[in-house]
Design a protein around this nucleic acid. Structure first.
Lengths: 309, 309
DNA sequence: AGATATTTTTGAATTCTATTCATGTCACAA
DNA sequence: TTGTGACATGAATAGAATTCAAAAATATCT
């Protein structure tokens, strides 16, 4: 079916630039015989001659000129594509489509993305809103490239990089009874209204790391979208909430609320970046995780480094 | 050095459109095994994977998408080029750069070109002004594609097509002595002023076909650019001229001048279109010669058909 | 779950094609 | 003419792309 190959285009261009088969052959690192065969065969398949040889420099026919025009259109594009692919191959470029399991992570993820974009401008970046429910299959099959999670399950083909650990703290109003206690016990919340982000319970530290293990159910769960809104409600005594210590820090400074640890030890989740093994070593990916960590430690009060468990 | 071939681009496109190796392989008329090898090998050379197979339809990586972009740029251009080349191959298109040896031929050549262009709009047409001196070498080496000539030399690689024959006639003033004679003899011009186009003598019928064979030199040769100008000079008795009968026809009708044959038989040159053998059978070329003949016989009075001597 | 069908991978064999090598031809200059 | 440089040609070779056959890996169905 098809006839023309890249090598033909390159030969023709070399021929135009040198004017003879002999020199052109040196240019494309072939023997002159090879070029002679190559062109003869192409001419045969095309059914028309491409240039007149009995002249110096060679003179192209209309067909030859048409092919040269094609070469001028195609070869530069090919070259550019190869340069881009080299960058992909070297891990200098790529795609990071992310999903987050942790609702308040937007707060540090967006600044991290901004910082990263400065250095790695041609990495394709996006936060996916579509895979909140089942991010790991999506990560495995390539719909996602990075998932921020607090639960490093031992999935094959997935690598986890710890970002940081924080304390999941209970925030209560200043005259709440728990203010009198050094820390909270699960049953202290049995009669409370708990205010949370409107997300699944498994994704809330208070439930997954504290109440559910103890089999305690609060009196009521109330939802609010925004962190400030939640804190306002808590401050005015409408309920209690559980948020990362770094998110509560500023409200604590302003003396809006009082915080207590969940249990004597406190609950200390660790956030991980989960990536596919094949991308785990790519420079553009490692760089993203490094930038994220840096941004977090620079901006968030109360977090600590974490090692992979 | 280079990696990417047309076949890779076609495979990737087929893969995008079908979503699986199996179907893509049917599309490009190869085994699916072949595609697997082909892509694996390309990925190896590029150093990065192009798509994720464990999904239906397959999902392209950034690198894969970049290659698809290249394919979208290149394959349509390749296709267009192939269509054009088919036309060249079928002789449906081509290039005709012409030169004329006969000065007054412009008069019928330009209308012929106009008529031809209507039917064969994408044949590249041009009248070269650069090769009046040595048109045949230029024709042989491809600087020219067609030469209008009255002397069909037996050059190898050149084919001659007769266009028409005409009589080269002597035009004289109405009271010129030659009016009394039935035809002119060479020596009748020994004392005359001869008015010609400002071109070489070999290209003038009067000299090449009449005076030089007889060894006669006129008293003086005077030049004028335009046919009308020449005829005016002749009519007012400033000299004699030799022009094709078809060029003199209108002046004869208006009774400006009198014409006489050169010798008893008259001089009857034939105009030929000389073309390179390899183009001689191309439809676009044959069509040009046909159109030229038609136009001539429709417009020129006094010409006759000619066979190849 | 397990069993079947489908799709992709893999390694070896094969077929095909581009290239080289060694001449041969041609045109042109001395 | 002979000699020189450039292109062509045919046979041999080397190198690839492709196929074949069989095995993994995935998806599908009950």
């Amino acid at each position: 079916m098809s006839q023309i190959e890249m090598r033909h285009l390159r030969t023709l261009v070399a021929l135009r630039e040198t004017g003879s088969l002999v020199e052109a052959s040196e240019r494309v690192f072939l023997t002159q015989s090879a070029l002679s065969h190559q062109i003869k065969e192409l001419e045969g398949r095309l059914g028309c001659s491409l240039f007149l040889r009995k002249t110096r420099p060679v003179r192209f026919t209309s067909a030859g000129n048409r092919l040269l025009q094609l070469a001028d259109e195609v070869l530069p594009r090919l070259h550019n594509a190869e340069l881009d692919l080299d960058r992909f191959a070297g891990g200098q470029s790529g795609r990071i489509i992310m999903a987050i399991e942790c609702h308040s992570c937007f707060e540090w993820l967006l600044p991290a993305i901004d910082a990263y974009r400065n250095e790695w401008s041609d990495v394709e970046l996006d936060i996916s809103s579509g895979f909140h429910f089942a991010p790991f299959p999506a990560l495995a099959r390539g719909d996602l490239d990075l998932v921020i999670t607090a639960d490093p399950l031992d999935e094959p083909g997935i690598t986890y990089f710890p970002i940081f650990s924080y304390e999941a703290q209970l925030a209560v109003a200043k005259r709440h009874p728990l203010v009198e206690k050094p820390w909270a016990e699960p049953r202290d919340l049995a009669d409370e209204v708990v205010i949370t982000y409107p997300v699944d319970r498994e994704r809330l530290d208070l439930f997954s790391g504290f109440l559910e293990p103890a089999g305690v159910e609060p009196a009521r769960v109330r939802h609010a979208e925004l962190t400030t809104m939640i804190v306002q409600l808590v401050a005015s005594g409408r309920g209690v909430t559980c948020l990362p210590n770094w998110a509560l820090h500023e409200y604590l400074q302003n003396d809006y609320v009082v915080v207590r640890s969940l249990g004597e030890e406190g609950v200390w989740p660790t956030l991980y970046a989960a990536v596919r093994k094949d991308q785990a070593d790519a420079p553009f990916m490692k760089a993203f995780i490094d930038v994220a960590k840096q941004v977090c430690f620079a901006n968030l009060r109360g977090i600590v480094t974490a090692e992979l468990g």
